[in-house]
Design a protein around this nucleic acid. Structure first.
Length: 507
DNA sequence: CAGTGAGCGAGCTTCCGCTTGACTT
């Protein structure tokens, strides 16, 4: 059917709340041709099997098709069955065909409710805006909340008051190569990152460190593991392509579409790119394990495949994760153009890494104190003892609010060999002034992430939501960040004031 | 009598989610 075949006409009165939410349907002209072909085929067959996607919208498409075929009177007494599969592999299709069922009317009704609601919200609120706020063009269940997220962040930034704090660090050595430790205890009290508020306190801490001998109190070495991220969904692909390749959501989806369609006679290069699923077919898992053993060695293959579960709210998992259709097809073996090459490589690495052994690291924490225990310093370091999946791929990070990041996170440094009880000599002490920073404005990537977390929008619509906000003139981009225009702030304030329920994050 | 401008009325906009290939310039 190539997607939906019928929709509500774009005019008033397509949904009638007073008539138990009766809905008018209109067949799309392009879909009309396809429906004729389907009807012809149905006429010549003795049964009809509906095999659209196994999710809410997929069930709805089957329902629409069935309804149209019934009205065309081509079914007579033919058996009608519904089957679903999550991947188009021989085994998945055969299994599905062996277990047909009937249409799931609860899913269909969920669709009808979703469709009616979107229409009623959008086609009621938008005209109100035209009349009350000249220049405002539209409102909707999804776009208005997305806009609100952007506006709320801007207000948060405007309200933000920078907070002064100081860091105190000492360069030390204990008959060893030098290493750096930071103040964690001052006048007997634990010091968190933002606790030293002024220069006087920082100087007092400096004096305390300089005045008294320092002893290495304890050395703790702890092995830690890091596990790979699951293979891509639409949302994580858009985020990571933005972080690592600098693609916006639209560019990512265009390149992914081409990879999906294929560039030569070998067929599609990646699985379906509009998905919220993180699972991989057994065939794909086996292939990944083979490739890893081949290219990296058996030590990089975990004893069991990794099975991932979708975390996203409202995930429907109709399709598997985005991955190369043939994982043995290495990016270097393909001759692809710029964007396609880079995106395929990203997808390949992410998939391969997701089935590799965890990385192992040793994290060392050294506590240093004055004899009276009033002043304490800590040095941390970590070393990779086995790189595992890091040999291929490391997930990118979004910038975070300064002063909010956890303390050990960014520490990849290596510490020299040290002994407990040794005296640490002070080479230098640094006190530095810092200010906390406001939360960052949303980028396309971080906004898509937020929308997905809130269960707003679907994989097929993330990129278009961003475009809508810009087309309406509600936001503009500056250095890849969303900045609300006055227009957008006005719309949000208006909707919050008079239609608060409709722009709740969880409506 | 031609050009200008005020006043009036008609027609338009809009939601979300699914999916490619068929159009034209």
């Amino acid at each position: 059917s190539y997607g939906h075949v019928r929709d509500l006409p774009s005019k008033d009165g397509s949904v009638k709340p007073d008539e138990d939410f009766a809905m008018d349907w209109e067949i799309d002209p392009k879909a009309s041709k396809r429906m004729s072909e389907i009807a012809e085929a149905a006429k010549r067959s003795d049964r009809v099997i509906l095999a659209t996607d196994p999710d809410r919208e997929g069930e709805a498409i089957s329902w629409h098709v069935l309804d149209i075929l019934t009205k065309k009177r081509v079914l007579k007494d033919k058996a009608v069955e519904r089957v679903t599969f999550n991947a188009i592999t021989k085994s998945a299709v055969l299994e599905a065909m062996a277990a047909p069922r009937q249409l799931d009317m609860e899913l269909v009704e969920a669709y009808l409710a979703r469709r009616a609601l979107d229409y009623l919200v959008g086609f009621t609120l938008s005209p109100v805006l035209w009349r009350k706020l000249p220049g405002a063009r539209s409102a909707g269940r999804v776009q208005s909340v997305a806009l609100r997220i952007v506006v709320d962040r801007e207000l948060e930034i405007e309200r933000f008051k920078a907070q002064e704090y100081w860091s105190v660090e000492a360069d030390l050595n204990a008959d060893s190569p030098p290493f750096t430790a930071r103040l964690v205890k001052h006048e007997g009290k634990r010091i968190q990152r933002l606790d030293i508020k002024d220069e006087a306190t920082a100087q007092a801490a400096r004096a305390a460190i300089a005045a008294s001998p320092l002893t290495i109190r304890s050395i703790e070495k702890k092995p830690i593991k890091r596990s790979p991220a699951p293979p891509f969904t639409t949302s994580t692909l858009q985020q990571e392509a933005a972080r690592k390749l600098g693609f916006n959501a639209q560019r990512t989806m265009q390149a992914a579409q081409k990879l999906y369609e294929g560039v030569d006679e070998n067929g599609g290069l990646i699985t379906y790119m509009r998905t919220d699923g993180v699972q991989t077919t057994p065939e794909g898992l086996a292939q990944a394990r083979e490739v890893i053993a081949d290219r990296f060695g058996p030590a990089f293959v975990p004893s069991e495949p990794r099975y991932y579960k979708a975390k996203a709210k409202n995930a429907q998992e109709a399709h598997e994760a985005i991955r190369p259709t043939n994982i043995a097809r290495h990016p270097d073996s393909l001759r692809l153009d710029g964007d396609l090459q880079r995106l395929y490589e990203l997808i390949w690495k992410r998939m391969v890494a997701s089935q590799m052994e965890s990385a192992r690291l040793d994290r060392t924490t050294v506590e240093i104190e004055t004899p009276d225990g009033q002043t304490g310093l800590r040095a941390t370091g970590q070393v990779v003892t086995f790189d595992g999946f890091l040999a291929v791929y490391e997930e990118g990070r979004d910038e975070r609010q300064k002063g909010a990041e956890s303390e050990e996170d960014d520490d990849s440094s290596r510490l020299p060999a040290l002994k407990e009880g040794a005296i640490a000599k002070v080479d230098a002490i640094r006190t530095d002034q810092h200010f906390t920073e406001p939360p960052p404005r949303y980028s396309e990537a971080t906004l898509v992430k937020k929308l997905e977390e809130l269960g707003i929008g679907r994989p097929s619509t993330y990129a278009s939501i961003l475009t809508t906000l810009r087309d309406r003139g509600y936001v503009r981009m500056d250095k890849n960040r969303f900045i609300p225009e006055d227009n957008g702030r006005l719309v949000t304030a208006f909707l919050e004031q008079f239609f608060g329920r409709w722009v709740q994050y969880d409506f």
